[in-house]
Design a protein around this nucleic acid. Structure first.
Lengths: 147, 147
DNA sequence: ACAAGAATGTAGCCAAGGCTTTAAAAATAC
DNA sequence: GTATTTTTAAAGCCTTGGCTACATTCTTGT
């Protein structure tokens, strides 16, 4: 065992890595709700709290709180007893999230993950895929398609 | 806009997908701490609260609480003012996490992600990679190596 | 028109995972 | 052997994101 304090071969940026992973996690829920609201509006013309909750697998009060956070962040608007709508910024976010989700699923499938599993895992994975990695995924998929 | 309640083309398992992503998240921090403790023991012969905290990028009280959770889950043991050690179960977990981390980084690099970015993203991604997906990654890497 | 049921909102609880501040114990230095 | 410094612990606060229970408001059926 090396108890020598000199022998420190941990990457110096390791704390930042974890901090960044935590930051990504903080965005994750907002992203999920924004995308869900966007989906619901597209499919049913409006996003009701009840529908959001049931699709997210949470109770209505939880959905209400999440929507409150979205509103606080300027991503959504709503009036009491009415549906929830996205601001331009929120709609933008939802669109980016949706595109990223597709890319992640496609990449997983491309490397041999069963589609059903790819869908499952992408739900958690997508929030931690950086811009750089996303670009790399797109390039890989393009190359594979052109093969 | 389709307000027809019949038109419900959401996958019925969508709530489960989100619930599973949330469950994975709950394990994530335990996994990170277990792996970190394992790293420190290997590198320095013991894992001290101070070192754990500084590498995780948190304050010591936060690290202490995390260790308390690990102990509660039967993954670690420690006595006051002594280092932290992993139980067999904890060591097992750490080893699995470490292996998975390597596989994820390797796969990212294999599809064209810059190594530094791969390290970064893997920190968040790894916790959401299912067994099935991990196996697929391994097969892909084997195939690429044998090419 | 109004009663019943469904949807939404509000209040309050809990655990997790951060933080700061303060206290005690251990290790070290003199 | 004592004093100082470092490490650990303890207490208490905050936010997030779940929950249940209860109150209110809409909507709908008759």
């Amino acid at each position: 065992m090396t108890k020598d304090p000199e022998d420190n071969d941990a990457p110096p940026n390791q704390p930042e890595r974890f901090q960044q992973a935590r930051a990504a996690q903080a965005m994750a829920i907002l992203e999920d709700y924004a995308e869900m609201i966007s989906d619901l509006i597209e499919e049913m013309g409006e996003a009701r709290i009840t529908d959001i909750a049931s699709r997210m697998g949470v109770t209505h009060p939880t959905a209400t709180k999440a929507v409150a956070r979205l509103k606080r962040e300027g991503l959504a608007v709503s009036r009491p007893y009415r549906g929830v709508f996205l601001t331009d910024e929120g709609a933008d976010l939802a669109e980016r999230v949706r595109a990223r989700h597709r890319t992640v699923v496609d990449l997983l499938v491309a490397v041999g993950v069963p589609p059903e599993t790819a869908e499952m895992d992408a739900e958690g994975l997508e929030h931690h895929v950086s811009e750089t990695t996303l670009k790399a995924f797109e390039r890989y998929l393009d190359a594979a398609a052109a093969k």
